[in-house]
Design a protein around this nucleic acid. Sequence first.
RNA 1: GGACAGCUGGCCGAGUGGUCGAAGGCGCACGCCUGGAACGCGUGUGUGGGGCAACCCACCUAGGGUUCGAAUCCCUAGCUGUCCA
Length: 415
Amino acid sequence: MIDLKLLQKEFDHVSAQLQRKGVTAETMSVIKEKNEALKKAKASFEAAQADQNAMSKLFGVYKREGKDIAELKAKVDANKVIVSERQEAQRQAEEALTSLIMAVPNIPDANVPDGAGEEENVEIKKVLTPKTFSYTPKEHWELAETTGWIDFERGVKIAKSRFSVAFDMGARLERALINFMLDFNRERGFMEVSVPQLVNRKALEGTGQLPKFEEDLYVTTDGMYLIPTAEVPLTNLYQDEIIPEKELPIKMTGYTSCFRKEAGAAGRDTRGIIRQHQFHKVELVTISKPDESDAIFEEMVSCASDLLTALELPHRLVTLCTGDLGFSAAYTVDLEVWLPGQNTYREISSVSNTRDFQARRAKIRSKIEKKNTLLHTLNGSSLAVGRTIVAIMENNQNEDGTVNIPEVLKPYLGL
RNA sequence: GGACAGCUGGCCGAGUGGUCGAAGGCGCACGCCUGGAACGCGUGUGUGGGGCAACCCACCUAGGGUUCGAAUCCCUAGCUGUCCA
């Protein structure tokens, strides 16, 4: 959620920054209007209420002094009508504003490049050089068949499209990767946490998936939601808390399944396991003091990048432009892994600093220098498991359709 | 699934209709004491919003209700605990 006080104080600046993320000038001025209307409605309601409170207090005095309360009661009764009218006006004004601002994305950092979409993301650097093949490298779904690691048809049979089944070494590789990633992250100072994979609405509002992206979430019959990422439960662990300063930063890593309807992705990546309704991911989440978040962001990017390097996977780092930046992020670096079969780099991790955007929604604070201060929340994948398997398959493939296991994973596979 | 009990500030805990935003304690901050500390003593210390300020409003799990007035009474929901099935 954006800071309404900041908006009020520096409307032109905030408005301009948000317009970079596609919020219209019109929406901004409506928000400004609604905010002012709410303040007026609130002041008028509170004034009536102050009258009410003052008169109510007199009852105690009158009673003690044995005075007649009939006249006072008539006055209070008349005021009560005014109070309830103004209360309703305030409630409506509040609702109008809230529904607007909950759907406003975070303000992008000043150094985020402008751009319409992923084509305009800016490369930071490449890590490791892709190896050259003496033949045309196969795509992972072809290798899925020769290795027998992934079965797409049976996934569809028992669920529907965009579900798959991992068999034998495919399944073992998944488990090995999860353990390897968790251990790697833990050695970098991230505490391992195991969280629920169903959460309530409030949690999703806290991290920004709701109310705007309801159509991409699976919901259960009793109103719980399947998590689209471990970022949701991990970040919301500290919802509505005032965290002692000495406990900061809180650096966590967790493995969960993730569930996404992929509502807006019809026709994209329909083959293979790049875009599934259910996938495994190891996530990093940090809650930090505001002045530490930039340094921690770099740590998180390095963690994910070094993980890819340890797996011997060539990749590159890109800064997302305004058009590709997510709803809650102020700044995001994507890690894209080289897929020789597709002859391109594909996203395998996304590390974001949301600054105080989620903290404001979720009320995550700490008392810093005697003042309750909204903290910064950061999240990043380290890494998406399915896509890592894709990358391993395509980068480590042999001409006969077999795939070599990366050295670092062998201990995890008993090899 | 049924019965009962509870849910109060960073934490613990008192408070059963009228200066209660809430005693007391812990914790924390500052000061005194000390060579330095601990102990002890003193002072301060909830959150959010509005206002230049005085000050005002809201918040005792949440949402409703009764009342001039609710932490306190009533209803509903959630959660926690205990017992029963």
